[in-house]
């Protein structure tokens, strides 16, 4: 069995933050006696990712998923434990040979020079990554065509829409054909059709080149569309590691069907609870067939069986005591 391309072994990371007291007296007090507190952002997380895998990191705001990406890319050092990429590379050392093999897209951090067209930044990246001119031209033409931003190559970044900028950020992360691609919120601010375009493109890339992709997103559509495996991070702990279907089957406890009809049901069938005029709920464990005429059903959804519903339930749980 080949060794994993990413190995995170009992990684811990904490940072010091300050709390400020309210009011003038609080500000005066803080001037001399600042209250420090340590926040454990990542706690004893172990993770193995194989070459060619697409791993989705899920978690609420502040859960620690972006910190985990920062540990894997070498932006932050681990306080305890170990992180290795490509078997023997310690990310925090940031050896050029290591950086050459990874691509990072942090959605709220830009690689693009604000006042210049994206092409200028990309040409600079061509030189930084020592990409041959012919290969660069071909690859860039392919990327811009796939992401539908060819006409914007010569437009100053400040004039681009958010979606176009995000697409160029993705191109910047991919321009040197990295072996591992880290994507932090890759579809933030992007319209639905562009999202679908990005999903299709990344899937194809993963299939054709065996590029390993690590992805964080609040948008469960991103994860469902791309990730073969998910790791759920909550309060710095890894609470689940497996497939999306595995996550759903493990946490979907109440199989409740939500049904919307075109007309009110008269009389109300047994085991059916009316939510409003044409909106009903049925406990799926109580019935083997639906007691509603299919001609009147507009939609059926399994409530608490969707990733969104499960994550909402998981993330609303209390923080574990430390």
């Amino acid at each position: 069995m080949p060794s994993p391309i990413i190995t995170v072994d009992h990684a811990n990371f904490s940072y010091v933050t300050f709390t400020k007291q309210a009011g003038f007296s609080g500000a005066w007090h803080d001037l001399f006696h600042r209250q420090k507190s340590t926040v454990a952002a990542v706690q004893d997380i172990s993770l193995h990712v194989n070459r060619g895998e697409v791993l989705g990191l899920l978690g609420a705001n502040g859960a620690g998923k972006t910190t985990l990406i920062k540990l894997m890319t070498g932006i932050l050092p681990v306080n305890a434990g170990d992180v290795r990429l490509f078997t023997d590379q310690v990310p925090f050392r940031k050896r050029p040979a290591f950086l050459q093999r990874i691509g990072v897209m942090l959605s709220q951090k830009s690689q693009l020079a604000w006042d210049l067209p994206p092409l200028d930044t990309l040409v600079l990246l061509r030189e930084i990554y020592h990409i041959p001119h012919a290969a660069f031209t071909t690859w860039l033409a392919f990327l811009t065509k796939e992401l539908a931003v060819t006409p914007q190559l010569h437009v100053p970044v400040r004039k681009l829409s958010l979606g176009q900028r995000i697409k160029f950020e993705l191109i910047c992360a991919l321009i040197h054909k990295p072996e591992i691609l880290f994507l932090d919120e890759p579809t933030i601010g992007i319209d639905v059709s562009s999202q679908a375009n990005i999903y299709r493109f990344l899937k194809q890339l993963n299939h054709d080149t065996q590029m390993t992709i690590i992805l964080t997103s609040h948008n469960t559509k991103d994860i469902e569309a791309l990730a073969q495996r998910v790791a759920v991070i909550n309060y710095g702990h890894k609470i689940f590691d497996g497939t999306t279907t595995g996550l759903i089957s493990r946490y979907a406890t109440v199989p409740l069907l939500e049904i919307v009809t075109d007309v009110p049901l008269e009389p109300l069938p047994e085991h059916v609870r009316q939510v409003d005029a044409t909106h009903y709920e049925i406990d799926a464990t109580a019935l083997t067939t639906l007691p509603i005429d299919p001609r009147h059903i507009l939609s059926v959804n399994r409530h608490n069986g969707s990733l969104d519903a499960i994550l909402t339930q998981l993330f609303s749980e209390e923080a574990p005591t430390q």
């Binding site: 990072v104 709220q108 930084i128």
Partner: peptide, 13 residues
């Protein structure tokens, strides 16, 4: 302050 140094640190330069 903005954290954009992360982008610079990720480049082999």
């Amino acid at each position: 302050r903005s954290g954009n140094l992360s982008v610079v640190l990720m480049r082999p330069i």
